[in-house]
């Protein structure tokens, strides 16, 4: 009575095949990640040392450390986020919580999504025109950070808006219905329930910002500048550009040096992500249950 028909058997075979196919694709996805990390550690691990992290490069960048680049990237990322995150979140709140659903709002949303797809080299040119020349920041940390901020802004807006829209409409209705204003609703219900999603978006942006080379190359990052920046009007070295330089532009670099720089860059991004994740977990814990 419960014997499998030929049709059942065929379906079962197909089911197994599809499953294995998807599993293979997943493996294919994980493999490069593991390979990248493996190669970096194998080839660059020997370059790592205390001095590598905390001294300036010497001998035409073929020896010494990468401290100025490390510090420079932290400056760039932090200032870029300080500029883009509040603006991005405010804009996303407006678009998701206040703006009426009409053609103008839809046009703005479309524009933002398209802006997120603009290549970073285009942002670089915009940064030169706007911040270096028009606002007169010169090639400086400030100009480079603002360029990065402009580049990350649309992505912050899009990801924040998605996080906000994941909050059930019924929560908002419950609040309005008790006489809460939009802002009270946002503060007491919408933000607390979307903050981890918003932070996830911001975390991804940190990684992208730290790794970008093009937008900072013309606006504030220096090829070789073995001092720590003293103000936001200074130029600075940055990890991503430094990696490009030691990997391709400087002769006689020891083999392990570029890989060491790459390893530190990845470690830095992972560290920043870890901090944000810890912050997110702490925020969740703070709720009483």
């Amino acid at each position: 009575m419960f014997d499998a028909t030929p049709r059942n058997l065929k379906d079962a075979r197909r089911e197994g095949l599809v499953r294995i196919l998807f599993l293979l694709m997943t493996a294919l996805l994980v493999l490069p990640v593991l390979l990248i990390l493996g190669v970096l550690v194998a080839k660059g691990g020997s370059a790592l040392s205390w001095d590598f992290l905390f001294t300036e490069p010497t001998d035409g960048m073929t020896a010494g450390g990468l401290l100025p680049a490390l510090v420079g990237t932290i400056w760039l990322v932090v200032i870029a986020l300080i500029v883009s995150v509040p603006i991005g979140i405010a804009a996303a709140l407006y678009l998701s919580e206040y703006a009426p659903d009409n053609w103008l709002t839809r046009a703005i949303n479309l524009a933002i999504i398209n802006l997120a797809g603009v290549p970073s080299i285009v942002h670089a040119l915009f940064g030169v025109g706007a911040f270096v020349i028009f606002f007169g920041f010169g090639t400086s940390i400030l100009a480079a950070s603002f360029t990065l901020a402009v580049m990350t802004l649309p992505v912050v807006i899009v990801s924040t808006r998605e996080a906000l829209q994941a909050v059930p409409q019924s929560f908002r209705e419950a609040c309005w219905n008790m006489g809460a204003t939009r802002w009270q609703t946002i503060r007491k219900v919408v933000l607390p329930n979307s903050i981890s999603g918003i932070l996830t978006g911001v975390i991804l942006e940190v990684s992208r910002t730290a790794g970008e080379t093009a937008p900072i190359m013309f606006t504030g990052a220096a090829f070789f500048l073995p001092f720590l920046p003293e103000s936001v009007y200074d130029q600075t070295m940055a990890m991503s550009l430094h990696l490009f330089v030691v990997a391709t532009q400087v002769p006689n670099v020891p083999d392990n040096l570029p890989f060491g720089v790459a390893l530190v860059l990845i470690g830095m991004v992972l560290a920043m992500n870890a901090i944000s994740i810890a912050f997110r977990t702490w925020l969740r814990r703070k709720k009483k249950w």
């Binding site: 019924s170 929560f171 209705e173 419950a174 309005w176 008790m178 204003t181 219900v189 009483k288 249950w289």
Partner: peptide
């Protein structure tokens, strides 16, 4: 004021929509 109106008029929805609070 809409806020005052809503204070006088409470609404119960089809699906219970308790807030994610205590």
């Amino acid at each position: 004021s809409l806020v005052q109106v809503r204070k006088q008029v409470g609404m119960v929805f089809q699906r219970p929509n308790v807030l994610p609070l205590s």
